[in-house]
Design a binder for these strands. Structure first.
Lengths: 204, 204, 204, 204
DNA sequence: AATGAATGAGAGTTCATTCAT
DNA sequence: AATGAATGAACTCTCATTCAT
């Protein structure tokens, strides 16, 4: 038993090492330029070894995708401590935007990249994303019930606010904001979100 | 003269054929899987022939990119006929969202894809995108001056509304709305945009 | 007749233009990097046009090869004015080396490059090279008869001196003299030739 | 240990096989017509396999280049046994010429071909060529000090004799001696070298 | 006389993946 | 558990050349 446990632990550690290396390379060299070989070189194992821990390249992406959602969910936990519904909603946006700008490649995998969709829908693990979505949706609902934001279709309202946050960060991450000074972008992102929130009555 | 014209017309048709084939393949197989060879096979010419009409692969992307912005700008023209500032702003959103959902691969090239950045930023032709942005920004400014939306930094406000629309469509295009029924998506997209607009005072 | 003459003259001029452009490109970009297309672009004609004046690429090389030998032969003419057999021999070397260093691409074609051999041996036009060789050989023979250099097989002696000159320039042209300062090379070339000539009794 | 040794040996053998195949093809088809693919076809491996043993095409050329210099240096060793300076100098020529005529493609790579320059000059390994040059130069110097050949600039004298030998063999290798009977060429080469050596006082 | 259009052949290189050891 | 060796399939791009017009 002890032996098997140690083996399992080693296995998990190797998986983590592969994943973090892959992530590092994604960040450094852009997603398209990272090959299995490069990951292998980086951890000083052979490419074949990678396949002992992951079925194929997609499997790696999928795992990273999940790790990204874990991290986002973890960050969302601090929202739970906030009581005021207004503040809660605004904190959702702040956490989301911060997460995206600080983890651009996770964000890419989770919300921008084409590929994972298929694999994810097939598996039951999209749940991992749903947790975060539901958390937010429940707070939208609460705000509505409390009369803070106008009554309306909850899904529509939730989706609208998510879209706002996603739009802000994905335009930035994909360099479509050349009309603004790059160094101002994080601050502009938050301001743009705030601007809408304030205008729909979620004032600070 | 007639001969030259015909030749020129043929040349333009061939370019169009290449571009539309490229587009079709983008749609069917995703951007990364479209190679010069595949385009050539599809139009039943040799790969070398492609190079008679386009300098290289980037050149094809660049042409598609521009064609996309032409189309968007054309669609924006009908907004000019509207006098009421509120309606104008809402029409901006409607046109943008409709364009995106009806031309997902153009939209991908224009606002989601990584990379075109280099070629585009180098050339002065990013203007082609700026025309559309400026058109929108001017209307935001007008609404603000008219007291329809609260005074605030114009760039922030413009960016915020653009982000909203972009967020809505890009989440849909990238299949991140599995919590909703696919066939409702176009309507939900418009509703989500409307929801925010209404709440910030741009009522229908 | 006048018309045909003019046509013929035009044809010859076009050939010359093609050849000189080819040569210019050889010098600028190195032999291997010059394509028919590049030559055509440079004279602002289409690639197909080149083929109206030259059978194929080898034909161009062959013509340049001959032009090179014309130029060398022309330069050799000034040797004929010299009476003193010693001076004559030394002048041969001087003319040859100067020609090579001033026309590296001609020299390449004439004496270093692999290709032309076949085409040249087949045609009777290697004579064009033989004229120059014979001119030199006759002077070697004369020197031998005059007792200036030791009696010996004339072909061997001629070949030996030709080899010396060829060796000097071809090592320089092909950058194998990195142990010397590049700017000294022309002077070293002449000195090396002189050194041998002096030592075999052809003193200045 | 035994296993690793065997693997290492296999690896070296594969490298050798690739190199000798490349060399064979150079000889048969000329340098420009040898592609990675052709080499691969010839050894009945896939093109990709070549890249397991050599970084790129230049790397193959570079290895052959070095192998050539190794072989030349090895052959020069037998000169060291000779005491008489005159004989030594003449032996230098004999060894050099024999090496060239017996290994025309090595010689091509080492002393005629364009291009290797970049890779070679960059690396410190051009030394491999300098060893041979210095060996010869020291013997020229010795002869001069011994009064066997006239005092003069050592570099010039060394370069002159090297040029002579290089000229002799490169004219032959590049087929510029059509005025002579091909089967006499090796003997003529040695005679031409001898002819000069004798005349400058290095009599047999 | 000139060419636009086209192409087959081929270049060097990289990739994800497999499998015997 | 780890890997060295191997590969098929693909990639973008360039070339000399042909031929109907």
């Amino acid at each position: 038993m002890g032996i098997n446990e140690r083996k399992e632990r080693n296995k998990q550690e190797m998986r983590k090492q592969i994943l973090s290396t892959a992530m590092k390379l994604f960040l450094e060299e852009g997603f398209q330029n990272v090959s299995i070989r490069r990951i292998a070189d980086n951890i000083e194992y052979s490419p074949a070894t990678i396949y002992l821990y992951f079925k194929d390249k997609d499997d790696i992406l999928f795992a990273l995708h999940n790790a990204g959602f874990e991290e986002l969910y973890k960050r969302q936990q601090e929202i739970l401590a906030i009581k005021d519904p207004k503040k809660r909603l605004r904190k959702h946006g702040e956490v989301y935007i911060k997460f995206a700008l600080e983890n651009p490649e996770y964000y890419n995998l989770m919300f921008i990249m084409r590929g994972p969709a298929k694999k994810i829908v097939e598996s039951e693990e999209w749940n991992v994303g749903m947790r975060s979505y539901d958390l937010f949706k429940r707070d939208v609902e609460a705000s509505m019930r409390a009369g803070i934001i106008k009554k309306s279709d909850i899904d529509v309202a939730t989706f609208a606010m998510w879209s706002l946050a996603h739009g802000v960060v994905s335009l930035i991450l994909r360099n479509r904001c050349t009309m603004m000074d790059p160094k101002d972008l994080p601050s502009i992102a938050q301001k743009a979100f705030e601007y809408i929130m304030k205008n729909i009555g979620i004032s600070p």
